[in-house]
Structures are given as C-alpha cells and as structure tokens.
Amino acid sequence: MFAVAPERQAAVVEMFTGLGFTFNATELTELGISVQLDWDGGLEVISPLPGSSARVAELVGEFLDRHGDGVYTVVLRVPDAAAAASLARRYGSTTRFEQHFAGEGTYLDEIDLSVFGLPLTFLATNAEP
C-alpha cells in the first residue's frame, strides 16, 4: 500500500494504470481516506481526505509529513488477522489501526501494525473483487 499526497494521487494512479493495473476508486469518509485499489494486482494507493480529522487520515497525513510519498504498509492476506496480530505482539508489535466489518456473508478484518520496524497490515477477508 502506497500513501501519496492527495494532489498527486491521480498522477500516481495514472502511471500505474499505464503499467496495466486497473483501479477501483472509493472514499472511506469514516476513515478519512481516498482509496484506489487494484485487488487482482495487489496494489493500493491511499491519500488522506483534505480536512478530515479521522484517525486513519491523521496517521496517513503524519506519515506523508515525515516521509513523503511512499510505502505506507505491506498488506499480508492471512487466514486469521487476530491470530497474526497476537503472534506479532509476542515480538513487540504496536498496533496503529484495526477495522472489522461483517454482513451479508462477507467479513473483513484488518490490523495495521509495526513490528521490528516493519509496517505490516494483516488482512483476513472472504470479500472478492
């Protein structure tokens, strides 16, 4: 997952589209981010929504302020996000963000953390693109 400044998100997506990626765009206003996702290609580009005070928008904004555009986290699809996070805690991880959705037979568990200085997101879901 790449974090990019909002004013560059369209250009970054255009470049990756030129490389053959196909994105679906959405705004997650409750999280305060704009998301461009190519599920099949495994590429996600996020930007904070201007003016949002949501926690995730603040985290992404802080990352951009410190590092500029770049790799925000590496998303790993796992069978059980909570079990993966529990294992990472044994190695001193710190959790930045968690979200859990379920309904109509679909679930998504996402846990964003840092362990050994590695930014990781554990994702467990049965959602299909």
Rank of each mutant, 00 (worst) to 15 (best):
E30W: 06
A81V: 07
T95Y: 14
L76W: 11
E27I: 13
E27M: 08
L108T: 10
L76V: 12
D38L: 10
G105S: 08
T29K: 15
Q9L: 08
H67R: 06
G51P: 14
T26H: 01
I111M: 10
A57H: 02
G103F: 12
E30P: 02
T22E: 08
M15C: 09
L118Q: 03
D65A: 15
A57Y: 02
R8Q: 10
R8F: 00
L37P: 00
N126Q: 01
I111R: 07
R90Y: 04
G42W: 14
A127H: 09
A57F: 02
I111G: 07
S47P: 11
S86M: 15
P79N: 12
F97N: 08
F23S: 02
V56L: 11
L37N: 12
F116S: 03
E58F: 07
L120Q: 07
Q9C: 07
S47Y: 03
Q9A: 06
T95L: 12
S47R: 02
A11K: 04
L28E: 14
Y107L: 07
L118T: 14
E98N: 12
T94D: 15
A83P: 12
L108V: 04
E30H: 13
P48S: 09
L19D: 08
Q9V: 03
L118C: 12
V45A: 03
G70A: 15
A124K: 06
R89V: 00
D80S: 13
